[in-house]
Design a binder for these strands. Sequence first.
RNA 1: GGGCGCGUAGCUCAGGUGGAUAGAGCAUCAGCCUUCUAAGCUGAGGGUCGCAGGUUCGAGUCCUGCCGCGCCUACCA
Length: 642
Amino acid sequence: MFHSIEKQISSAFHAHIQVRYGIDLEVAIEQPRQSDFGEMAVPAAFQLAKQLRQAPRKIAGELAAEIGPIPGVAALEVAGNGYINIRLDRGAYAADLMRGESPAAGGSAEKIIVEHTNINPNKAAHIGHLRNATLGDTFVRMMRAGGQRVEVQNYIDNTGVQVADVVVGFHYLEKKSLADVQALLADPAVRFDYYCWDLYAHTSSYYKDHPESLPWRSATLHAIEAGVGEVAALAHLVADAVVKAHLKTMLRLDVEYDVLPRESEILHLKFWASAFELLKERKAIYSETEGKNSGCWVMPGLSEEGKVIVRSDGTVTYVGKDIAYQLWKFGLLGKDFYYRPLQTYADGRVLWVTTDEPTATGQQFGHGTRVFNVIDARQSYLQDVVVAGLRALGYNEQADQSIHFNYEMVALSPRCCADLGISLSEEDRKRPYVEVSGRKGLGVKADDLMDSLIAKALEEVSSRHPDDAAEKNLRVATQIAIAALRYFLLKFTRNTVIAFDLQEALSFEGETGPYVQYSAVRARNILRKLEERGEQLPDFGKELDSAAMARQLKSEDFWQMLLAASKVDSAVESAVHSGEPAHVARYAFQLAQAYSNFYQKYSIIHEPDRERKVFLLWMTDFFRAQLERTGSILGIQIPEYM
RNA sequence: GGGCGCGUAGCUCAGGUGGAUAGAGCAUCAGCCUUCUAAGCUGAGGGUCGCAGGUUCGAGUCCUGCCGCGCCUACCA
């Protein structure tokens, strides 16, 4: 609503300036810092001042006097040394809001692919993975809210070194057979992903103490790549089981995917071979004959010595496979996966996984026009190599549409390490934060964190609602815990290193997810209480015409609140544009704050004046709807009670 | 050495394309529950926006240099 008026005003000024001064000016609309300056401010006079060689104030005066009426606008005022401040017609604005907005047309031909989560399937997910998944999932929700077509991919590297290391742990260190590991999986007392977490750390430290055992790793990798024998079967067993655990962990956060492209299929379907031919044919890589990279296929340009794509032993590096995958995402590889359904989510969405066997499903993925790779900032260099690869192949357009949606890592604060009983080296203790390391087994497991949050929320909920069923309280506590976690991970902008602090993450007060939920729950409570008293929710359309709205909105307080609540779309759109889910989180908080304030200040159900009461109820209902909508974009559900 | 990022209140962080008196949460202090849920609300204190220049009507924001911190810079992923 707010957004469409902004556009109207901008184009009205644009047209007028074109006619009056013959200047084609992109008219910006700002929001005044002080609310009593009006709802919008046009700084166009400043921009014109240079070209016209006149004082901004004088130009602003001319513009305001001559532009004529603009629909929805009540008044134009010249202020400061050249701002034109705009006051909207409040009654008309509110009446429009009540009528409901015309849904965003959207529906462009664009198909956006977002790849996120991408956890190596060799251990339990940790807090760093949660930041990735939450960021990716929220960004997807933001774009889908704007009517975009988005496909979510979660890449599974089920044949890599990390999986191999856990297999080494089972096979060489623990001397477990395939059947032994199957038994382990069947044992309900064992959390398999946690077991692997420890085993991975164990194997890593074993290599360190016994470097002579490193050939185990390459032998295992070769067996996995060849795809035969017990070791290969073991690798599949481990990876599949851990993937299943990750999906379950992510589902707790309401994170869903459309497809899991797996490295094993990239291997078996020879995606790399196609990409390799393409790269050679178009001279994007060359065979190095001297220096330290002698015998390798190298991509030039990125560093002095170039980036090795194919090692001297003929095996391809990770980046090479990534280039093939990126080509596939754009439909440029000339090859495709086959797919089979893996599971169906509660909302009906089907999750597919790649396979190398032809299937009759007719399902298709990929062929995107834009690709977002949600990958942490430490991998910027590799992402640059992938994009450079596309460019070297002549795919400049796709290179431009390949976006590394990067974010900084989650580290642990020293206090957090102390709380968790993690002992630090002398060196680490001096640092502002400590990097999470799967290899060292250093980190906070995602499920443990969620469990702590739920336990804490449950304590609160049951003390407030001792009479409600335990099962119901648990459901509410879970919703609160997840909201707290998602909000915590989203409130930081992407390039901020999160020094994870348990105390802070466990907080449900102030700028948190539960605060947002609480505000919406209160709004709902009022509407419910009204019905419990035997009153009916008024027919707002009938009782509040624009004249009534205008009377009520003479109150600056009400007007400012309504204005704030009507900006969901512009907030989300600008957050999509800047690629910052944190901006949506912040907006949700501001919305909640505004309603909390309103709730505290005005008595709604007990308001004696009928028109005012109906208006207050309408505001309550409007806020409720806007809070729920913004919450759902953040992946935050509003509980029944709190 | 090179590349990227960061430095804003005691702490943790926001501050689209330069714009009006630099904001929020936490913490601290002082108030508000017989009245729609106190996971809340009101108020107070707290700032040389790392430092120094530059660009202009105007700089936390743009440019240069310096200082401090982090990440990356593998024939690991």
